[in-house]
Design a protein around this nucleic acid. Structure first.
Lengths: 189, 189
DNA sequence: CTAGTTAGTGATTGAGTACTAACTTATTCG
DNA sequence: CGAATAAGTTAGTACTCAATCACTAACTAG
């Protein structure tokens, strides 16, 4: 038996939960599945977190945080066309290497409506705040142009949806997306 | 007691299921909730459909069909900029009047990954086929320009996500989107 | 070495859920 | 009318799942 500090365990739980929730969504994922992936007993999760919802929230916030950082790091020190190119490339890397992060995003979005319908207003607030943080993070490097930022985010959401639907790389739906030369031409105007 | 033909009932079930699945997703929606909304006993659903998955599939296909028709009708007899404007307006109307159709789309997309992970390849195939039908439907009126079509679809997906997250009308995230004059300027180049 | 704390488990429970089987009621039509 | 058929219900089963409780094993400070 490998013992860890509670904080380290919580980290493991967040990672495992992200993978599981990304696949099955909130309701399609059992706490037992998460526990199994962590390598810990199911009841122990409830000592690390007050409940399943708290685990989902933690995974959601981590997901947003990671994405914000991805873009912030990519665009660091760059501006305009160069920043755009760098951020697009960074996201391309995420698509290939961590598609579960995109899926977790999607699961987050659809979970808001459900939560709000049940009276849980806090979750939606957190997700919207995360989105605004993400928005602002790409907005400045892109020259604070609302239209350009909106297009950038739109492409991101299209990518998420295409990945969710399982379109394989190389399929014609990706044609209008790669290379990010597309973005470049757009900014030049 | 109001009796209906099985086919009529199935229609009611599809409509009710769309509303319920849009909110809770596949796993977050019970067949009892659907039955209640239809006004029929829960076991009777299993006489109208072979199982819950079949209901979800039927609702998904209907959702795609409706969206394809929305765009086809809007763009009928129009081309280029005019078609773009008409389709954008049509979708704006859907956002306002039937947000559940957008949510059902999202639920469909995330359900594909889960289904595929469970070995159900057929559902994903159906959704991807629907997407391609939708793509082709907007592609021609937009002048068969891959880039324009991709941007159009991207905006659609961004809208879906913003609606899912519950951003209210008038919020600044919508700024870069309305009016669809945005689209017009884009095509003129 | 021992007392206290922290990490972790096993057993269980109560609520919910997809689906089945057997039965009942309305409608149609010869 | 009366029998066949189609629409619908009630009761029940087998199962899953989040959460609780009572307990044990490991680490650490004095």
């Amino acid at each position: 038996m490998v013992r860890m500090s509670a904080d380290e365990r919580r980290e493991s739980v967040i990672r495992a939960a992200t993978s599981e929730f990304a696949r099955g969504g909130y309701h399609g994922t059992s706490t037992e599945a998460i526990a199994k992936r962590v390598g810990v007993s199911q009841p122990y999760l409830f000592r690390l977190f007050p409940g399943k919802k708290a685990i989902f929230l933690a995974a959601s916030e981590r997901c947003m945080e990671d994405t914000v950082r991805t873009f912030a790091d990519a665009a660091e020190g760059l501006e305009g066309e160069e920043a755009l190119h760098a951020m697009a490339n960074a996201y391309t890397k995420v698509i290939a290497e961590q598609p579960e992060r995109l899926m977790m995003q999607m699961q987050m979005y659809v979970a808001v409506a459900a939560a709000e319908a049940e009276g849980d207003h806090a979750f939606g607030e957190a997700v919207r705040a995360g989105w605004m943080r993400l928005w602002d993070t790409v907005h400045l490097p892109l020259g604070a142009d609302v239209n350009e930022t909106t297009v950038f985010m739109a492409f991101g959401m299209l990518i998420n949806c295409l990945v969710a639907m399982g379109f394989p790389p190389g399929h014609r739906v990706w044609e209008g997306m790669y290379p990010s030369a597309r973005f470049q031409g757009r900014l030049e105007k």
